[in-house]
Design a protein around this nucleic acid. Structure first.
Lengths: 202, 202
DNA sequence: CGGCATAAATTGGTCGACCAACCAATAAAC
DNA sequence: GTTTATTGGTTGGTCGACCAATTTATGCCG
């Protein structure tokens, strides 16, 4: 009864999600075709039918979590009225992901490690970061235009915002007891608002 | 004529350095006992004589690069007169390492990936980060006491400084064309000085 | 409508290669 | 002669990639 034609996107999704779960559970060293196949409840052979090799599966997993985060951030940011609220929303969405969705950072860190030694993965990673900076930079530019933020170099400021979010998320991921999520968000907001503020220090 | 007794520290060093080179060259996926042994010009068996297993070698490699960075940062910071110059020195030392000594980040990222799935490695990593925050925090506290910095929460500020350095270093490592090293240093300094400054915005 | 060809989807197993850990044996230094 | 240092090979297992064979759906033609 189940359709057999048009399974491609379904299976791809199934396999990518299984890859993410395996990666989060066992790390890249423990990411084997057998385990992914078992996790996805398909045969081993089918993995190579849908993906050229292991690296392609890893790249698909990384793209998937990146897209997930993008979606969450966009959803939060859309509700914001001004640039400050928008930045606050971005911070919140990133830190919520870091704390509640551990898979994200696990997948990404394993991905980084391989990206150093695989040209394809390196390109995917570079593009993801460039895109993130572009999105953040666009928000900052609107804030500057509206007089909410100081006239900083947008590219530089986007790199700073992204760097702080990455860095704080990493520390939270490594040591869950370091700070509560709200406190981490407050710390990041304070640092970035002082950096971007037009007025004197608060 | 060569001594055979007291080889332990020599061999350990030899093996750790080989581990770092292999890790930087091939990643964790390509880190095998055979390759490390070849790189260190020793037999395979000896690796297990000096290290319990592969994870122990990885941990030793991570401790080694961390200690290296510590030493560089301390050497740069010692020359600084005031807290601002000290922070500038820390930033410079970290970014020089990130740009010129690619092995550092390679080893660390591979290490992070495994640390998620190995309790021993996770502990080593958590301690390394706690130590880094303590060192940075001590420098900030002196700056606050001297009236050079705003009265921020030292723990929070140390986390911010470390986060920004990690984040910028990551972006530089992934995309060498993003910024020149001096520009990255200037960007980080600007962001952190604004965050920590006592006076109004510049 | 019914049967045949073609394509899509999937299986399970095979292949050669490689791995980490271990160990018995040896050599050198004390 | 006992401890320290080192060798090189073995072992039991796993890996990723590949493929021949099978099943299922679809389009085509009479």
């Amino acid at each position: 009864m189940t359709l057999k034609l048009g399974m491609a996107p379904v299976r791809r999704e199934q396999i990518v999600r299984a890859t993410i779960r395996c990666l989060a559970r066992d790390g890249y060293a423990g990411l084997t075709m057998k385990r992914v196949a078992a996790e996805a409840a398909v045969s081993q052979g089918i993995l190579h039918y849908y993906f050229r090799d292991k690296a392609a599966m890893l790249a698909a997993a990384a793209l998937r979590v990146t897209a997930d985060l993008d979606r969450r951030v966009a959803a939060e940011a859309r509700r914001a009225r001004d640039a400050r609220a928008r930045l606050r929303a971005v911070i919140r969405a990133c830190l919520v992901t870091a704390v509640d969705n551990r898979d994200f950072w696990t997948v990404f860190i394993e991905f980084w490690g391989e990206a150093f030694h695989d040209r394809r993965l390196a390109t995917v990673n570079r593009q993801a970061y460039a895109r993130a900076r572009r999105l953040i930079g666009a928000g900052l530019a609107r804030g500057i235009a509206a007089g909410e933020f100081r006239r900083v170099d947008v590219e530089e400021a986007a790199a700073v915002v992204l760097a702080l979010l990455d860095g704080i998320s990493l520390q939270l991921t490594f040591d869950r007891g370091l700070m509560t999520r709200p406190r981490a968000a407050r710390v990041a907001e304070t640092a970035l608002f002082r950096y971007l503020s037009t007025g004197g220090p608060t």
